[in-house]
Design a protein around this nucleic acid. Structure first.
Lengths: 189, 189
DNA sequence: TCGTACCTACCTATACATAGATAGAATCGC
DNA sequence: GCGATTCTATCTATGTATAGGTAGGTACGA
């Protein structure tokens, strides 16, 4: 197997494990079994577990950027953009997973600072993007929302993260309801 | 020390550790150091770690019931009740902690079924209570909210759980904004 | 003197990690 | 173009720390 293939499979499997079980609840053994190599071989690519966690989060952040760019390019208005953003979370919900960032945020205190920074960056970036969409949507007369954009953005981000958490525990979707209620906020004066 | 004192201190410390680090990220050693006894002594009270987790969550659920009863008794209207409910989470936020239930939900897949059931019970109970408050508030003409109560309840619960997660990672309060935005939903027609 | 509340000492399993080996691919000097 | 060398990707074997858990002992108050 080439380095590239193996690292991709390692990152994929690690991300899956973190989202399903949490960073502190998976071991190199679990990961090795999933990928089909020995634990020692994982250390060849990622000397320490934190290196692996860092790489997973790094890629996740890069993918967020790609996704936001794609949404900005294709969606025809701000509401459609926000809907597409929410869809990213709803797809995660369908898999019975939570957001990688939410999972790491929940283990936040036990994470090395380098990973903490990436988690914060992910949240900050998401929030800034949502705020921009709302501000722009209000300016365009698309939303009647009269409050501060930061309020609505905090509500959306929090409820998406929390919605995944709640939905997984109860094996009952939450984000459809969350989405509906959220757009009421924006549409109401 | 009496059994009662020690169990209380064990439960307090365990809850703190779960809320701050997560169930899989604390050990009997950590707990023993916090309480000032030996790890073996913890086994005297809680033979297995799952017994301890179960007991912590059990108490948390009982306390929720007490809190809801107290709120129902003292708050003068539905809006005040919801505000008091949110205050429970805002107090947690102040401590830099997340909800015990949210922490366990994040480790959900690795938890024994007996604890999973308690987590689900906590969420179900909270949701049912919030739904009842909204329905009642709408009936009393206190809220203009025209949607399904389940929508707003899902939004509130999710955003409270997620808000704690997000706030802790960024050491920047989120629930005040969440609260403001949430009441816009109820107050808008 | 009996049970409660703790202790010391220990066990087994597993975690992350390192050392050193090897088969095969790639590269370099001549 | 070919042998020597070096690199890649993986292995086995092992180390060290820590996890949860057990066995059996002890001090002390009712």
């Amino acid at each position: 197997m080439t380095t590239n293939e193996t690292t991709t499979r390692l990152l994929d499997a690690a991300q899956k494990l973190i989202q399903e079980r949490g960073y502190n609840a998976f071991s190199y053994k679990d990961l090795a079994e999933l990928v089909g190599i020995r634990t020692a071989s994982i250390h060849y690519y990622y000397p320490a577990k934190t290196d692996l966690g860092h790489a997973v989060m790094d890629r996740y952040l890069a993918r967020l950027e790609l996704a936001l760019t794609a949404i900005d390019r294709t969606a025809r208005n701000e509401k459609a953009k926000l809907r597409a953003f929410i869809k990213l979370y709803r797809d995660t919900e369908t898999c019975g997973a939570i957001c990688l960032c939410g999972s790491l945020a929940s283990d936040f205190g036990t994470m090395p600072p380098s990973i903490q920074k990436l988690v914060v960056a992910y949240l900050d970036r998401s929030e800034a993007w949502v705020v921009a969409r709302i501000v722009s949507g209000v300016a365009a007369g698309e939303f009647a929302f009269a409050g501060r954009a930061a309020e609505a953005a905090a509500l959306l981000l929090s409820s998406l993260q929390g919605g995944l958490l709640v939905a997984r525990a109860r094996t009952k979707p939450a984000l459809e309801l969350v989405q509906r209620a959220f757009f009421r906020v924006l549409d109401a004066a």
